[in-house]
Simulated scan of single mutants.
Amino acid sequence: MTRIISSLAEVTDQYDAAYVDLWGCVHNGIIAHQDAVEALRAFRAAGKVVVLVTNSPRPRANVEPQLREFQVPEDCWDTIATSGDSARSAMFQGAVGQKVWFVGQPHEAAFFEPLNLLDQPLNVQTVPLEEAEGIVCCGPENPEADPAEYRAQFLYAKQKGLKLLCANPDIVVDRGETREWCAGALAALYTEMGGESLYFGKPHPPIYDLAARRLMATGLAPANPRILAIGDGIRTDILGALGDDIDSLFITGGLAAKETKTTHQPDENALNAFIENEKITPTYAIGQLR
């Protein structure tokens, strides 16, 4: 049974660290949620560690300036693990070949910058689809357009037997009041069409391995830390926490606000119905991180 709590402080003493989702939890793609910032500050003040675990296709170094742009202060987190870094590691080890067709926006070109974690990274080149050995997908070129627009290109890629590396398993995000498609929607379409998609963000294991390494690298956590995963994605944040065998706090006022009838807090009956339908049970739930 999921316990509805009124604040993170209610359960802080039970954990050493938190894996905290960004979009829909700490900010809305435009500006920080101030209550979430204060909650994380208090969590750290209690001697706990905050690892921002995000399905952003960006490298960690490119997420930090974005956080400043959204007014998420540096004193509310300790380190960052991105699905982009996890996917980049696989790409530079040859997961989808050396010549790749890139699906994404121009500002995501940093995905192809050299990765210092590897001794001998593959020299990956972006090429037209007709010359590609694989696909690297950071998201649709137009996030508001129907992913089905890629169907013809994906059919050709599937027939060539190309694998698709998905840098962000999220299906959608809400940028303010606007819902946008993510790389996960394209990967799901490619899989549905019979292609093979490779995932590296939540809820898949590689990003949790990266998050654990980043947590230990802070030097602030015990050898076997008690970890709480926090996020608004039932099939990413919460499912991933279950797979990693850690507790979770479901932010119901994000992607599932309508289904859980969340205003300040979720409606208990609506929340239980949503959980039953999804067959994924969080440890705790709260309307917004505070």
Rank of each mutant, 00 (worst) to 15 (best):
M1F: 01
R3S: 10
A9L: 08
E10L: 05
E10F: 05
T12F: 03
D13E: 14
Q14T: 05
A17W: 00
A18F: 01
L22S: 00
V26F: 00
H27Q: 13
H27W: 10
N28A: 11
I30E: 15
A32V: 03
Q34H: 10
Q34C: 05
A39V: 02
A42Y: 06
R44G: 07
G47T: 05
V49R: 03
V53A: 13
N55V: 05
S56V: 09
R58S: 06
R58F: 04
R58T: 07
P59M: 10
V63F: 15
V72G: 08
E74C: 05
C76L: 07
C76F: 02
W77A: 06
T82N: 13
A87Q: 07
S89N: 12
M91K: 01
F92V: 02
F92N: 08
V96M: 08
G97Q: 10
G97D: 12
Q98S: 10
V100Q: 11
F102H: 11
F102P: 00
F102M: 10
V103T: 09
A110C: 15
F111S: 08
N116T: 08
V124E: 02
T126L: 12
A132C: 07
I135V: 12
E144P: 00
A148C: 08
Y150D: 10
R151I: 13
R151H: 12
R151W: 15
A157N: 12
K158D: 12
K160C: 07
G161L: 04
L162S: 06
C166Y: 09
C166Q: 07
N168H: 09
R175W: 15
L186E: 02
A187I: 10
L189F: 15
T191D: 15
E192P: 01
M193Y: 07
G194H: 12
G194P: 04
Y199I: 04
F200K: 03
K202P: 11
P203G: 08
H204M: 04
P205G: 05
P205E: 13
I207W: 00
M216Y: 14
T218S: 10
L220F: 13
P222K: 12
A223H: 09
I227N: 02
I234F: 04
I238V: 13
L239A: 11
G240M: 05
D244H: 12
D244M: 05
D247L: 13
A257N: 09
K258H: 14
E259N: 08
T260F: 13
T262C: 10
E268R: 15
N269H: 14
L271C: 00
N272R: 12
N272L: 04
N272T: 02
F274N: 12
I275A: 09
N277I: 08
T281D: 04
G287E: 02
Q288I: 06
L289M: 06
L289E: 07
